[in-house]
């Protein structure tokens, strides 16, 4: 299978800040590819470069076989781009926005109706409402509709679910799965780790660098240490108690419990329980768990500065 998108050594500076620093990856045709990263990781800059809106200072990117620098016009007609910020016309109605984007791409809503029908039926009851008055979830659906209306081969979705309620997020990802089945390649960024597992492959972006790139299960395999979930009635005190424990590698609150890794290869559970008891925490339950994507992400970020320091 050929690649829908290839980048080599992308570097982008804004003043002295390096928003992207040597990003190289490729997305296969028909893939649902996730870019995971915190705010300021460089996700939006990456998307803007791929959408031909920004030129990289170094490196190159090829989208659908076209160079983003030389053949940007060809790319623009073939790509559906959804910026991170809601960027539709707030004073136009739902139907007017959709019509407008269909017309400027030289098509019509009718011609693409089969593609957007599933989303459009949800928007239909509000079709005369101004886009600015829609709820967060509805806005994102409309933006997706507008990005799809010219039947793009590749969707570039920059944080489409940020600020959207949980139910709408689920629906949104179900739609993405459907478009992937129709053969549309999708590159999507998100700060939510739970969404990452829904991607075919994903990449971690941190401070302009790619830390890891693999399938969701491949990513979690990067997590080598045994991971434990520790819970007790007084959960809020566990983290501080564990951080003063001499064998602790990491301890952070995660959902209902505290995720813990040990510096030793085989931790001594009894010693751990005894330490917590000495800190006045009783009724401790320790279970070994499979690391999730977020655990992997956190451990990768923690390793990163340590790796950097020797180089200065």
């Amino acid at each position: 299978m050929s690649d829908a998108l290839v980048t080599e050594g992308l570097l982008k500076r804004f003043g002295k800040v390096e928003a992207l620093n040597g990003v190289a990856f490729s997305v296969r045709q028909g893939e649902l590819f996730g870019i995971i990263g915190a705010d300021g990781a460089g996700k939006t800059t990456l998307f803007r470069i791929l959408a031909t809106l920004l030129l990289p200072d170094e490196g190159r990117a090829e989208v659908l076989g076209f160079d983003t620098r030389a053949s940007y016009r060809q790319i623009r007609t073939r790509v559906g781009y959804m910026p991170g910020r809601f960027s539709l016309y707030q004073d136009l109605s739902v139907a007017e926005n959709l019509d407008f984007f269909a017309t400027v791409f030289g098509t019509s809503v009718e011609k693409s109706y089969d593609l957007i029908r599933d989303i459009y039926v949800q928007l239909e009851p509000f079709k005369n409402r101004k886009a600015g008055q829609l709820s967060g979830g509805m806005k994102q659906k409309l933006a997706l509709c507008c990005a799809l209306v010219h039947r793009p081969e590749l969707l570039l979705l920059d944080e489409p679910t940020t600020g959207v309620d949980a139910v709408s997020r689920d629906e949104f990802w179900q739609m993405l799965q459907r478009f992937r089945q129709l053969g549309i390649t999708i590159l999507v960024s998100t700060p939510y780790m739970d969404e990452a597992s829904l991607c075919d492959r994903l990449a971690f972006l941190q401070l302009g660098k790619m830390l890891a790139l693999d399938t969701p299960s491949g990513i979690t395999n990067l997590f080598r240490k045994p991971l434990y979930a520790i819970s007790a009635d007084e959960k809020h005190r566990i983290v501080s108690a564990l951080r003063s424990f001499q064998h602790t590698a990491s301890a952070y609150a995660f959902g209902d419990s505290v995720h813990y890794t040990d510096l030793r290869d085989v931790p001594d559970e009894q010693e751990l329980i005894a330490w917590l008891a000495s800190k006045g925490i009783s009724d401790v339950r320790i279970t070994r768990i499979r690391p999730g994507i977020e655990d992997t992400f956190i451990s990768l970020i923690e390793q990163e500065p340590a790796r950097e320091q020797p180089h200065g």
Partner: peptide
């Protein structure tokens, strides 16, 4: 300001 210029640009107008 509203970001719609981003979309206008990629629309190949």
């Amino acid at each position: 300001e509203s970001g719609t210029m981003e979309l206008l640009l990629v629309s190949s107008l």
